[in-house]
Each structure stands twice: as structure tokens, then as C-alpha cells.
């Protein structure tokens, strides 16, 4: 990687200290993302994707806490900065788009209020200039007659429009990094397509790095450069998106890919990953995926180490699926 990464996350750990025990929602994940690139963070519900996003923005709520690791944003460790510095970074340098567009906008405040405040929290500009910028941002995400729409309340928008507004707010201050947490999951396929197109265009134009959290592999396939597959708080496989999706080496990635319906497999029953994601409070000893894995053996009773594979791929498995035996080198990082 020649370009200096926008964000470099090293061994991040975010634990939730609940009455039932410590839930390791994010347990030692490492990834980085370069300017203008898109990283797809994939996994089932409860695998720690969203908590990863919130950890980056310092928005983990009690009883959760980032307990270890580094989140280096342009070399600055976000775990160590003051609350005020973090606030300055949020919304200007790093912004986030949430999953449910129906819930992200405050229902009792007008769109212009919610956009203008996002600008004026960081810059001393007049309301008129801020409004102008808000209007331009709405136009940018394809909202017709932005002047009129600015004066509307969130409930006067459809879900897709609200998500556009949320994206416009995230883009307002031209951030370097956007964390998008399943922003199209709640939307129609057509709207999803439009929004993906807009976001992709904006990222390549402005050099914004994008972390796209989703469980939809088809979205990642079309959008991302890099992919990280999360399972039970750990990244089990990461690498170049095409390499990983074409040749999954981790049985979990393989399971995810084969459970996507495809026209090539018409008529055949869909394969599925047996069982369900484990509770974070009672993770199996060793590899968390072992109980659901058809390749598991006695080695899997121990926690696997990270292995490096060609094309900068990393994976966390004792028994990777070997498409070509020469591909795998046994290395510990």
C-alpha cells in the first residue's frame, strides 16, 4: 500500500460489561482504509459490525467501552483524544450514516435546522451561508426542489428521501471518512441502486474513504475495494474484494457466499450455514465458528492465529478451504 491510510485500526477491542458477563462485541480487529477506497464490512447480525462503526466515532454507549487497540485517523489515535477533539472530528472529518433512515432524523426539528446546526457546530458561518450549503448538499444527493424540502419535517419524506437527507448531512462538511452502517438495508432495490451510485461517485470525486457495513454480499461485490468478514467480534477473513468473493478461504465466508440465491443455482435447494450466530456471552472455546463449520476438527478447539495468504489476504482459520495448495503459507503475524 503506497498511499498513507486514512484510517488504520489495530487490534481494536470493544467490550460490553453487562450483568450477564463481558460481551466481547469487537475483539481484536485490524484493518485499514486508504483515501477514496471503499471497505466492505460484512457479517451476520450481532457480529460486531455496527459496534466497530460506533467505536471509530467514539459513540459506544454504556455499558460498552473501547478497552484496547488503536484507531489511527491520519496518525491520530482516536482512543486517546479528548472528548472535545473527538467532537470536532465527528461530522467534519469522520461522519456516519445510520441503518434506519426512519429513526436518524429528529422528528420534531425541520430539515434545515438539522442541517444548519451540523455546519454551525464546526464553523462560524452565517445562517444564510449555512443554508446555502445545506441546499447544495440536498441537490447533490438528488433531492428535487431543495429549497422547499429544507423547510419540511422528516415525516414528510419517504424512507429513501430521508436516507438521502442523512447522507447529505454526512457529506455536509466534506469528511475524509464516512462510516455507512447498512444505509440501504431498509430501502427498495431501486433506491438502493441510486444511493450506491451517488455514494460511489462522491467518494471517487472527493477522495473520501468509505466503510460500508452490510450483510449484503452483492452490494459489497459491486461497491467495495476491500472486504472484511466479521464473525463473533473478529475479522475472520479480509482482502481484495474480488479475490475473497471468488475464492473464499474461510468456511464462514464460503457459507455466506453459497447462501446467496443465484440464477445459476435455480431449482437446487439453497445451502445454508447450520445453527445460528453464538451469543457473545457464551462463545465456544477456540474458533467461534467451529460448532457450525463442516470442516472443523480437534485443532479448532484452540483459537486460530491470523494467517497471511497471497494478495494481502488475512484469515483466521485452522482449516482454510484450499483452492490451490500452494496458495497457503502458514505464518503467524
Amino acid at each position: 500500500m503506497t498511499q498513507k491510510p486514512t484510517l488504520d485500526v489495530r487490534d481494536l477491542r470493544t467490550y460490553f460489561f453487562t450483568k450477564g458477563g463481558v460481551a466481547k462485541a469487537v475483539d481484536g480487529i485490524t484493518f485499514s482504509i486508504a483515501p477514496g477506497k471503499v471497505l466492505g464490512l460484512v457479517g451476520e447480525s450481532g457480529s460486531g459490525k455496527t459496534v466497530t462503526g460506533f467505536s471509530i466515532l467514539g459513540l459506544v454507549d454504556q455499558p460498552g467501552r473501547v478497552v484496547g487497540g488503536e484507531i489511527l485517523y491520519r496518525g491520530e489515535d482516536l482512543n486517546k483524544v479528548s472528548a472535545e477533539r473527538m467532537r470536532e472530528l465527528r461530522g467534519v472529518n469522520i461522519s456516519m450514516i445510520f441503518q434506519d433512515p426512519m429513526m436518524t432524523l429528529n422528528p420534531v426539528l425541520r430539515i434545515d435546522t438539522q442541517m444548519i446546526e451540523a455546519i454551525r457546530a464546526h464553523e462560524k458561518v452565517s445562517k444564510e451561508i449555512a443554508r446555502q450549503r445545506a441546499r447544495d448538499a440536498l441537490g447533490q444527493v438528488g433531492i428535487a426542489s431543495p429549497d422547499e424540502r429544507l423547510r419540511a419535517y422528516p415525516h414528510q419524506f419517504s424512507g429513501g428521501m430521508r436516507q438521502r437527507v442523512a447522507i447529505a448531512i454526512a457529506l455536509l462538511n466534506k469528511p475524509d471518512l464516512i462510516v455507512a452502517d447498512e444505509p440501504t438495508t431498509a430501502l427498495d432495490v431501486t433506491i438502493q441502486g441510486q444511493i450506491l451510485y451517488e455514494v460511489q461517485k462522491l467518494c471517487s470525486q472527493t477522495g473520501t474513504a468509505l466503510i460500508w457495513i452490510t450483510h449484503d454480499l452483492s452490494v459489497v461485490a459491486g461497491l467495495a475495494d476491500q472486504i472484511c468478514v466479521m464473525y463473533a467480534g473478529k475479522i475472520v477473513e479480509s482482502g481484495e474484494v474480488n479475490a475473497v468473493l471468488d475464492n473464499p478461504m474461510h468456511p464462514y465466508t464460503h457459507g455466506l457466499i453459497t447462501s446467496v440465491p443465484s440464477k445459476n443455482k435455480r431449482g437446487a435447494p439453497l445451502s445454508q450455514i447450520p445453527g445460528m450466530a453464538p451469543s457473545l456471552l457464551s462463545l465456544p472455546k477456540g474458533c467461534a465458528f467451529a460448532p457450525r463449520c463442516k470442516w472443523s476438527n480437534s485443532n479448532c478447539q484452540e483459537q486460530p492465529d491470523i494467517r497471511l495468504a497471497p494478495q494481502n489476504r488475512r484469515l483466521l482459520c485452522h482449516n482454510p478451504i484450499e483452492y490451490n495448495n500452494d496458495n497457503i503459507r502458514q505464518e503467524t503475524s
Binding site: 467532537r87 465527528r90 445510520f98 434506519d100 436518524t104 432524523l105 429528529n106 448531512i169
Partner: peptide, 15 residues
């Protein structure tokens, strides 16, 4: 605990 409060924080608004 509403998302819009978290979103407001994500916008970097003052407490």
C-alpha cells in the same frame, strides 16, 4: 437512546 440522538452526536454537535 433514540438513533437521532446518536446521529446528532455523530454530526459533532455540542452536548
Amino acid at each position: 437512546h433514540q438513533d437521532y440522538i446518536k446521529f446528532a452526536k455523530a454530526k459533532g454537535l455540542q452536548e
